[in-house]
Design a protein around this nucleic acid. Structure first.
Length: 526
RNA sequence: GCCCCUGUAGCUUAAUGGAUAGAGUGCUGGGCUUCGGACCCAGUGAUGAGGGUUCGAUUCCUUCCAGGGGCACCA
């Protein structure tokens, strides 16, 4: 990958110049006159060595160029001490060959090689249909998992089902199931209860549990069939945590290690000794375990699973739970990273919080039916996860004609149209000599955009900022549309036609890859 | 009261401490005898307020203002 190559070269040059070793940051300047890539490392070194930054940049510039002259068309120095890299056309032209060779594997790399990631998302309470808030977790989690896989991680996608019979939630759900209460009751739940006729004589925990199973069956089908999101692992709290005595085991371990104490008739966990602000109750006065305890028992399994990263995607209402689990991870001696993503709220235009407990809900299904899966996924992904987002259903639908998703898809359809017009079978494998013909600025900037795909994967796998994907898809589509405008692909010039077809094919591969990471279709026609 | 997230063009928003803050939408004006005009090009227009750190701050620190979320022996 070019960015990693650059970092390596710059580090070599720094050490050659006896300036020690230093972290090197690479930027992608917005203005083309500052090159394709740049570094401000001379400015940093200047401070350390108390030297003029321009002097350092002037020292490094020829060294870097000498290390790999073919990579650059030039390297410039700019005030107050930037080193700007201009990538040579021949390097870029050869990347087209690389993309065509690697096809859908292009962009995969070894960042995560040999590393395992567990990512848990959605995990909605099994007391009703998914709502528009769950959509954020579903789409963000799915895309993030896709990116991590692309980055070489072995990824386990997990869904936790909150269905313990002795939980208050399922108890309440039982009352509703048996007609003794109205918690969680709505038309959908009512239809599920009606379907359970004949099982009226169940005890309270059992009735809610069975009803939850019915709901969960629908949710699973909705996720897999309609949203096309797959999970590797479905963990039922009732079956995996309670039936297998996980609670008792973890409790015994806490007791043995003196991590719990009794107070006011309840049992408290010493989370404050591990960085949390206070201790929390794990066993109630009534003798029942709290949600925290069962969540600990659940996470213990994840922590013991040999994962380098455990990622939890939670709604904003779980924010207070973050510091607890972080403390617990330390307590249990988890050596990997526990990354908890707290998603900010998705609300309606009116501002009412989406909840199964109030009426007037909009389900995720309704939303997807209304605006389409592709538009919905793009809509959710394009905003930073920690921004509170407001959905105006009418507006989302109204704007769908102008949604950027169509802009990106249109580029893909155009590509397919060109390829089929020429005849796919007549496209030859590109030779370097032919690819040298790709010299138009629009051709070269399209290639630059294509190889950026690897950087997108790397950055997103590290910082989880998935809004980068739709952003990139838009940038890539723009580069393609510009190229299309400036460079006629199929022409009398047979060699140039072949060269440009190769580039078009490469664009199809990368754009298709990007859309598929987002779970968005790549139409051949629109 | 304490903790978390957010405040950027009219609207929706982007930006690992980098150079002239980037898009979409809106509005104004241009562009196809030829591969899809759902396109391209140009113009318009923004960092809530004040301090601080830095060669450089949308980004880090701090005070304030505004919105949202959380602070349970709920999940």
């Amino acid at each position: 990958m070019i960015r990693q190559d650059l970092i390596k070269l710059i580090k070599e040059a720094i050490s050659e110049a006896n300036l020690g070793s230093h972290e090197v940051g690479i930027d992608r300047p917005e203005d083309k006159i500052h090159g394709d890539y740049s570094t401000g490392v001379a400015l940093k070194l200047a401070k350390m060595f108390k030297m003029a930054p321009m002097k350092i940049a002037e020292n490094l510039q020829p060294r870097i160029l000498r290390l790999k002259p073919d990579l650059f068309s030039k390297i410039e120095i700019a005030e107050p001490g930037f080193i700007n890299f201009f990538i040579s056309p021949s390097y870029l032209q050869n990347r087209v060959k690389e993309i065509l060779k690697e096809k859908e594997k292009f962009g995969e790399f070894k960042l995560g090689r040999g590393q395992k990631v567990n990512i848990e998302f959605v995990s909605a309470n099994p007391t009703g249909q998914l709502h528009i808030g769950n959509g954020r977790s579903a789409f963000a989690g799915d895309s993030l998992a896709n990116v991590l896989e692309k980055a070489g991680f072995q990824v386990v996608r997990e869904y936790f089902i909150n269905d313990a019979k002795n939980s208050k939630q399922i108890m309440e759900f039982s009352k509703t199931a048996l007609g003794r209460g109205e918690t969680y009751l709505n038309d959908y739940v009512k239809s599920k209860i009606d379907g359970m006729a004949g099982k009226k004589n169940l005890d309270e925990g059992e009735a809610g549990y069975l009803l939850a199973q019915e709901v969960q069956k629908d949710t699973k089908e909705f996720l897999e069939k309609k949203l096309k999101i797959r999970f590797n692992k479905w963990v039922s709290e009732e079956e995996k945590i309670y039936r297998k005595n996980r609670i008792k085991k973890i409790l015994d371990w806490f007791k043995k290690n003196n991590l719990v104490y009794e107070k006011d008739g309840a049992l408290w966990l010493k989370t404050s000794q591990f960085g949390d602000e206070k201790d929390w109750v794990v066993i109630r006065e009534t003798g029942e375990p709290t949600y925290l305890l069962s969540d600990i028992a659940y996470h213990k399994d994840k922590f013991d699973g040999g994962f380098n990263r455990v990622i939890d995607i939670w709604g904003a209402d779980h924010q207070a739970h973050v510091s607890k689990m972080k403390a617990v991870a330390k307590m249990l001696g988890f050596r990997g990273n526990l990354d908890i993503l707290v998603l900010q709220l998705v609300t309606l235009r009116g501002g009412e919080k989406m909840s199964k407990r109030v009426g007037n809900i909009i389900t995720l299904q309704d939303l997807v039916d209304e605006i389409g899966l592709d538009v919905a996924r793009w809509f959710y992904l394009q905003k930073s996860l920690n921004t509170h987002t407001e959905i105006d259903l009418d507006l989302a639908k109204e704007q769908s004609e102008k949604n950027p998703v169509f802009y990106a898809q249109y580029a893909h359809a155009r590509i397919c149209s060109i390829l089929s017009k020429f005849g796919k079978s007549k496209i030859q494998n590109p030779k370097s000599k032919i690819l040298k013909l790709l010299n138009h600025p629009s051709e070269l900037s399209l290639i630059k955009q294509l190889i950026r795909f690897q950087e997108i994967i790397e950055d997103t796998a590290n910082d989880y900022q998935i809004q980068r994907l739709p952003q990139y898809a838009t940038d890539l589509a723009t580069s393609f549309h510009q190229f299309y405008q400036d460079c006629r692909v199929i022409s009398e010039d047979k060699k140039l036609t072949q060269a440009r077809l190769s580039l078009v094919l490469a664009a199809k591969i990368v754009l298709g890859n990007t859309l598929s990471l987002m779970g968005i279709s790549s139409p051949e026609k629109m």
